[in-house]
Each structure stands twice: as C-alpha cells, then as structure tokens.
C-alpha cells in the first residue's frame, strides 16, 4: 500500500507553507493596525490555527478562545514579527505556546483531562470531513489527550499542519532530534491507546 494521498495543505513542507502565506503588503498593513489586514490574515490562517488549537485542547470553546487570543496577539504584537521566519511559523509559535500553557494548566487542575464527548462530537459543518464520521474524530481527539502535551502538540502540528521537522523545531523551539523522538514516542503511545481502546471506529481498513 502506498501512503495516503495527502490533503492539499499537507503536500510537504515547501508547498504547505509557500502557497498559503500572507503577502508582505498585508503584514505591513497589519503592523500599521489595519483591521482589514487582520481579517485577511485570519482568512489565510484561521482554519489552520483553529485546527491546531482544537487538536491540542480537544474542546471547541477552548479552541475558539485560544484562536481568538492568538490572532489578537498577532494583531497587537504585529511589529514584533521581524520577517526572519515565515509568518505562519511565527503565528504557529504563538498558538503552540498558548495552547501548551493552557493544556498544562488544565492538566494541573484535573489530573485526568478527558474532553467531554459533546465538546468534541459537535463540530461545525465541514463538508471535507463529512465522510469521516464525527465519532471517530472525537475518539481520536480524546485519545490524543492522553499524550503528554509536548508530544500531542508535536504530533498535531506534524499531522494536521503538515510541518516538516525543521519547521517543527522552529515553532516549538527544540532541536530536530527532540522533534523526531517526540514523534516516535507520541506515535508509540497513541498506537497503544488505539489498541487498548477496542473501538471499532479506530480499527484500520
């Protein structure tokens, strides 16, 4: 069997990032405090940032709040983006830091951080994913919650965002070797969880 054909946004590092970056002009306007520029930024990155936040937080309300916070920070701190990295990298770093802190705080509050089924089982209408089945998605998101936050974040950024290892190391601020081992350990753990879950939804094939 050959690998699954990837979704458009995930066709490898080069394409995933160059085809969907905001223009310099928009970033300049954002720095100048132009709300319309923020709207454009959101149109380009909104789904991606929300997808990552949801993958980490497993709760739509939290993911919405986190997404809002990320974009508001992007707006308020627009001048801090120097252009040294890609804008998506910078934005994802904001999202990563925020969701990681949030996830850790949640974990501290309640040792067992299982998302409520209704939180994950009622996604917004989403034609692309209609066939996949909400229950399965909910089950996966719940299982992801069992991973340590760093592993979860790395895995979600890899699979959902399609970031390369180099991009992951930039976004997460860790060496590529750490990225590699987090992915190996995260996948091992997730595989064990899927096996243990005995859910038909998660049976391959």
């Amino acid at each position: 069997m050959s690998p699954q054909p990837p979704r458009a946004r995930r066709t490898g590092a080069e394409e995933s990032t160059t085809s969907s970056e905001a223009s310099e002009d928009v970033l300049d306007r954002l720095r100048a405090g132009d709300i319309a520029a923020l709207d454009e930024i959101y149109r380009v990155y909104g789904d991606r940032i929300f997808g990552v936040c949801f993958g980490i937080l497993a709760n739509r309300a939290d993911a919405e709040d986190a997404t809002q916070e990320v974009f508001l920070r992007a707006f308020q701190q627009a001048v801090k983006f120097s252009g040294k990295s890609r804008y998506s990298t910078w934005l994802l770093r904001l999202a990563a830091n925020h969701t990681l802190n949030f996830a850790k705080a949640v974990k501290r509050r309640k040792r067992v951080s299982r998302a409520l089924p209704e939180d994950v089982a009622s996604p917004a209408p989403d034609p692309d994913h209609a066939v996949i089945g909400r229950e399965r998605r909910a089950a996966v998101v719940r299982l992801l919650q069992e991973l340590p936050p760093e592993q979860r974040l790395t895995l979600v950024l890899r699979e959902i965002e399609g970031l390369s290892y180099f991009e992951l190391s930039e976004v997460l601020g860790v060496p590529v070797g750490t990225v590699t081992s987090r992915l190996i350990r995260g996948r091992e753990k997730l595989r064990a969880l899927v096996t243990d879950s005995e859910s038909d939804l998660l049976a391959p094939g």
Binding site: R7, D47, F50, E64, T67, P123, I132, V141, E159, I160
Partner: peptide, 10 residues
C-alpha cells in the same frame, strides 16, 4: 486518523 481529527474554524 490524526490528520482526520483536524477541523475548520467555526
């Protein structure tokens, strides 16, 4: 399956 867990912003 993790990829499929991705979702769109409301």
């Amino acid at each position: 399956i993790v990829r499929e867990a991705g979702t769109r912003a409301p």
